[in-house]
Structure formats: structure tokens, C-alpha cells
Design a protein around this nucleic acid. Sequence first.
DNA 1: TACCAGGTAGACAAATTGGTCTACTAATAT
DNA 2: ATATTAGTAGACCAATTTGTCTACCTGGTA
Lengths: 181, 181
Amino acid sequence: MNEKRALLIDTALALFYTKGINSVGINEILKTSGIAKKTLYGHFEGKEALVLAALKQRHENFITWLEAEISEAESDQEVIKRLFDALGSWFNSKEPSLGDFRGCFFINTAAEFSDKDSDISHYCREHKEEVKRLIKNKLTSQSPLLLDAICILKEGAITTAYVTGKGSEVTSKCIKILSAY
Amino acid sequence: MNEKRALLIDTALALFYTKGINSVGINEILKTSGIAKKTLYGHFEGKEALVLAALKQRHENFITWLEAEISEAESDQEVIKRLFDALGSWFNSKEPSLGDFRGCFFINTAAEFSDKDSDISHYCREHKEEVKRLIKNKLTSQSPLLLDAICILKEGAITTAYVTGKGSEVTSKCIKILSAY
DNA sequence: TACCAGGTAGACAAATTGGTCTACTAATAT
DNA sequence: ATATTAGTAGACCAATTTGTCTACCTGGTA
């Protein structure tokens, strides 16, 4: 049923995110989920289809989470504060719906698949665009520069937090930087 | 000799950067470089040692390139302009010494190796610290916020350029954002 | 000459990969 | 009652992985 399919996706997503896609074999996903191989290949054409499903799942988790975090903001300054505070919480692995922080799943995945025309690379780009759209819709300011500043700093914060390991400092810096606007 | 060793590292770096480390096998590096397997294992303990050597080579290439790009700047505004113009050129694959742009090699590599205590992850962090130090030394301003703003935007620009594919727009936005300081 | 370091070419081993297939079970719908 | 569907368990396959090993070649040096 759909339960098996969902369990497969959740297991794959968790393993892919924490270990990287090429480091996780089909057999490990099966063993962890306790599902038989034939069931997997009944639901998915192959590993790539499973990767795509995991990306989709992550995208939904992330958008849902982000929207909830910034929905109640009543000014642009508050949008910025809520956004980067939420990111800081994510960086410190305090957001259960996003799992232990290990960078951006889409950036990490895009890094593993060199073919820029593949469905996977394509989906990673769409994710970023949709996040940008979500932020744009919450802002009252129509300044494209503000929107770009927020999004570029957001990307920078994610990779900086991942590579340096210090999560909360980066986000408060971003808020200060943006307070000039 | 050292020539073989150098050729091995250069070949490995080129392949690792364009395809990702887990997607490149030892045999492909050997075939591309035309070097025998036993020679490789005479120079390196194993694949991981080769990865580390490639990271080191990339680090040197990158630092040398960056230093040359911003060395002649005579004001902080000029440092910023030169830095982001250079990045924009890199994003458009116009910097031969850095190869066809495919994001930051260190971020990509860190994404593939989940163990945060491994030599590889460690080296990726050191690289970012050294780049930051280089920029810091070129700035006359002692404001830590300016330095952080530059570095976070730089990281954001790299991943944004990689995932969206549009390289030059991002960097001019960064320069505009920083012109507020 | 004889030796030896450093190289080539590639067979080979052991493990792992993604994926197919057979045999069996359990529940449900006709 | 029977046929179908969805599942389990796991053997099996072909390809690929990293790494070792044997056999041979070559150029410089004692």
C-alpha cells in the first residue's frame, strides 16, 4: 500500500540526507526500512526515481516548515528576523521535521550529480525558486534588491553554518547586515 | 618521479571537481592520466589520500588566483568590486586556472563525506577560514560585520550561481548590497 | 656488466552495486 | 471457492569498486 511507499521515501530521505546519496545503497534502505526489494521496485523504477521522490518529500517538508515559521510576521523586519531565527534553529538541529542539520539537501544532491540537465538538478533549482517566491510573497517591500539580499545571505548562511559548524552566530550576523535596509 | 605524482593529482582534481568524488573511480583516473595502477599506489596510500592531495592542490590554486585578483585594490570598495568581479568571471568559466565552474569544490566534497571529524571535512573548513583571512588582510576597515557580510555573501553567491546557472547577475547584486557599507 | 629504482600492463581478489527473478504467504474481491 | 494483488525473503546476475600482485621493461649508476 501507500504506507510502504511512504516508509520507503522517509527512510531513503533520512539516509540520503545524513550520508549523501552515492554513499547509500538500495540494500541499506531496504534493511533499515524492513521492506523487501521487490516491493521497492514495484513502487519505483529505480534508484533515481527514489531519489526524486525523496527530494520532493524534502521540498514539501521544508516549505511547510518555513511557511509556518514566517507566516505570522507583521512587518518586513519581522519576516527577516523570523526567517533567520528559524534557520539558526535548524542549523542547531532543533527542528525535528528537518532532521539533524547537514546542510541543504538540494545543494548537497546537486553537488553529487554533475549532469545539469538531469531531472535531479532541475528539481534542485525549482526548490530554490519556490523558496524565493515564498519569501517574496511575505514581504511588503517590492524592492528586488532586498529580496536578493535576503536570499543570497540565506544561502551563504546555510553553507557557512555547515562548513564551520557554528550555526547560531551566522544568522544573527545576517539579521544585523540586513538591518541596514 | 614527481611528474607522475603531479599528473595524478591534476587528473584526479579535474575529474573529482567535474563529476564528484564518489562518481569517479580509481580506474578512470588511471585511464585518463595514462598512469599504471601500481604507480598510483606507490605514491598514495589509497583513494582518500588522493582526495586529500587534490583538495590541497585546489586550495593552492584558488588562494593564488584570488590573491592575484584582489592584490592591487587600493580601497575597501575596490577590494569588494574586484573580489565579486573575479567571482563572476569564475562563475562564467572564464578563469582557466579554476576549470569549468561547478560550484565550490570544498562544499561539494564536504557534502559527499558525512563524517564531520574526517580529515576531508576538516580540510574543507580550513580552506574557508584561510580565504576569510586573506580577505581580512586586504581590508583596511576593521569592522567585523563588513568582513562577515562579504564572506557570507560570497558563499551565497557561489551556491546561487551554481544552482541557478546565472552567474554574473548574482555578483553585481552582491556589490550593490555591500555598497550600503 | 650487473643491479635496482621506478615505471607499465593488466590479471586477480573480495566486496559492493543496482536490478531481476523465483517461490512463497496473506488478505481481499469477485 | 478462486483469482488477484501486494507483500516477504533472498538467491542470483552482471558490472563495478578499491586494492594487491606478478611479470616485464627501461635508464641510470656502482
